[in-house]
């Protein structure tokens, strides 16, 4: 078996699929370079990102997959999950080696693997739409730090742009050290330096950095959260199932 080592990028993944066919491989293990451990028995190939090769593969997938399935393919990639990278390569092979329409075969393990991971990434994407709590800063930017399980910021940018068209906002991914900044015109990718005046380790901004109205808004939200609860129906198991504890630190109503 040949081991392909790639750098974790989407372009790298597509290049690896290209190499698989170009080199007429039989079986390939796809490994993320940061997890690669050399072994004597394996033959290893380092994948060099290639825009042209990646585009060939993507165009090929475009011909065989519906737009919906292409998005699924990309979303599964955003899981950053080592096993999923392998699943994506296997899935692409299955699609290329079979007549069009093969993606509907839910009896196939690769189709199921991608479809399941797509569902997980969707759930995380949906949670970010739900759990993001903006704090209005003194210079009138709505700010929210997050650390999603998967790299879902690219999937929520347009949602927030369409919704909050008339306010500037920042959503910052603390784990992946980049964020989205909307400046009333477009959404840009930013890194930590840009917002260096904010201590990113603290989720709740210090009061001197926030707008005078921020404190009351947050207090009222907590009041509302408590008042709308019906104690006679208390069901903490269900509560935690819907709002897993790892998200609590980002939710002001749970402070």
């Amino acid at each position: 078996m040949t081991t392909y080592i790639f750098n974790g990028s989407f372009e790298g993944l597509l290049t690896a699929i290209f190499e698989f066919y170009d080199r007429k491989e039989k079986a390939v293990e796809l490994v993320w370079d940061k997890l690669y451990q050399p072994s004597i028995l394996d033959e290893a190939l380092e994948i060099v990102n290639d825009e042209f090769k990646a585009k060939r593969v993507w165009d090929g997938l475009k011909k065989k997959l519906s737009p919906e399935w292409r998005t699924r393919f990309y979303k599964a990639y955003l899981s950053e999950d080592p096993q999923t990278f392998q699943d994506l390569l296997d899935f692409a092979r299955y699609i290329f080696d079979n007549p069009a329409g093969a993606e509907a075969n839910f009896g196939n393990p690769h189709v199921i693997a991608i479809s399941k991971m797509d569902k997980k990434v969707n759930r995380e994407k949906h949670r970010m739409k739900a759990f993001i709590r903006f704090q209005q800063t003194g210079d009138n930017i709505y700010y929210c730090p997050v650390d999603p399980d998967f790299n879902v910021l690219p999937l929520i940018a347009s949602f927030f742009k369409n919704r909050y068209t008339d306010q500037r906002w920042i959503i910052y991914d603390l784990k992946r050290k980049y964020g989205l900044f909307y400046d009333l015109k477009s959404v840009q990718e930013i890194t930590y330096e840009f917002i260096s005046e904010i201590d990113i380790k603290k989720v709740i901004l210090p009061i001197e950095l926030t707008d005078p109205k921020e404190e009351l808004a947050s207090i009222l939200w907590k009041d509302y959260f408590n008042s709308t609860n019906i104690p006679a129906r208390k069901n903490m198991k269900l509560h935690i199932q819907h709002v897993p504890k790892r998200y609590w630190k980002y939710l002001n109503e749970k402070q």
Binding site: A130, F131, T228, N229, P231, R233, H239, H242, V243
Partner: peptide
């Protein structure tokens, strides 16, 4: 639709 949080009784807010 989006549930932004859930009360302690497990209902969507």
């Amino acid at each position: 639709g989006i549930c932004h949080t859930y009360t302690e009784d497990g209902r969507c807010v």
